[in-house]
């Protein structure tokens, strides 16, 4: 235990200082929290506007999609809170922050991840959490030990999968000049995809956001499994249980991309 405390001390010191500095400008922090909540709320409204005009979409009714939104937005917001700064690595490269990381005796990626934290995302996570609770209440969930386990598994895996997306984007941007928009297509496009019923996707979209970047596994598939709905083509109803596998795959992709990116930086970049 003491060993763990000692090993994590460097990271805790940095994170504690980031949190202090964000809360120290109270007016700014309150504004950040409010705006973050508003963004989450408007995104929920967009889903609501579409689903209110039809009975069901991709096999989900409004109640079910609120649950999908809740899981996706809560896990994305928490991943954004902890990992969201990773994909701004071009700024770190320009400011030489990455070179400074090299001079410290911790792994680069861990330093990057723990170099900042966006507490304001808590507000948006609050919107997601509310949608999740409402979604669980208004849907006809057959509560049992296994359904509780499924929800817990979905939340943990969703968080891990979105976190991996930010790390993947950071690694990819060592290669891509001005590549932030290209990676955003999959990180933030991925978040948008995660709130959709994957049943409406055609095959190429299923390949990209169902499996390559496993967004369907973050919220939609666990909800399909939880509510006992039939899955769409390629995605049987039990696939929600495989969310942790998807998270592992996302991390494998992220770590390989990160490693290649760092090699590229050390070998080719200046």
């Amino acid at each position: 235990m003491g060993d763990l405390a000692a090993r994590t001390a460097p990271y805790r010191a940095v994170l504690a200082s980031r949190m202090r500095s964000q809360r120290s400008y109270r007016a700014n922090f309150a504004l950040d929290l409010a705006s973050s909540a508003l963004v989450g709320f408007v995104e929920l409204a967009e889903v609501w506007v579409i689903f209110r005009s039809v009975d069901s979409l991709g096999g989900l009714d409004l109640a079910a999609v609120v649950l999908v939104f809740g899981v996706a937005d809560l896990t994305f917001s928490l991943a954004d809170l902890a990992f969201g700064h990773c994909d701004t690595i071009p700024t770190y490269l320009r400011a030489g922050t990455l070179d400074v990381f090299y001079l410290r005796p911790q792994p680069l990626l861990l330093q990057l991840i723990t170099s900042d934290i966006s507490l304001r995302r808590l507000a948006r996570a609050g919107v997601g959490a509310t949608a999740l609770v409402v979604g669980l209440a208004i849907n006809d969930v057959a509560w049992s030990a296994s359904s509780v386990a499924l929800v817990a598994l979905a939340l943990a895996s969703g968080f891990a999968t979105f976190a991996a997306m930010f790390v993947w984007a950071a690694g990819a941007q060592f290669y891509l000049i001005d590549g932030a928009e290209a990676t955003n297509a999959f990180v933030y496009g991925g978040r948008y995809a995660a709130t959709q019923p994957a049943a409406v996707w055609d095959r190429p979209l299923k390949a990209v956001f169902g499996f390559l970047f496993p967004m369907a596994f973050t919220a939609y598939l666990p909800v399909v499994t939880l509510l006992g709905l039939p899955g769409p083509e390629w995605m049987p109803g039990w696939l929600g249980w495989c969310a942790p596998v998807a998270a592992l795959w996302a991390w494998l992709l992220a770590l390989l991309t990160w490693r290649a990116g760092v090699r590229h930086y050390q070998g080719g970049g200046g």
Partner: peptide, 23 residues
């Protein structure tokens, strides 16, 4: 190059909108 990245993002979001709104 940034414009190319923007186009990738544009198209990706467009295809996701197509899927949902067409449905």
């Amino acid at each position: 190059l940034a414009a190319l990245g923007g186009l990738v993002a544009n198209t990706t979001f467009g295809l996701l909108k197509v899927a949902l709104l067409f449905a």
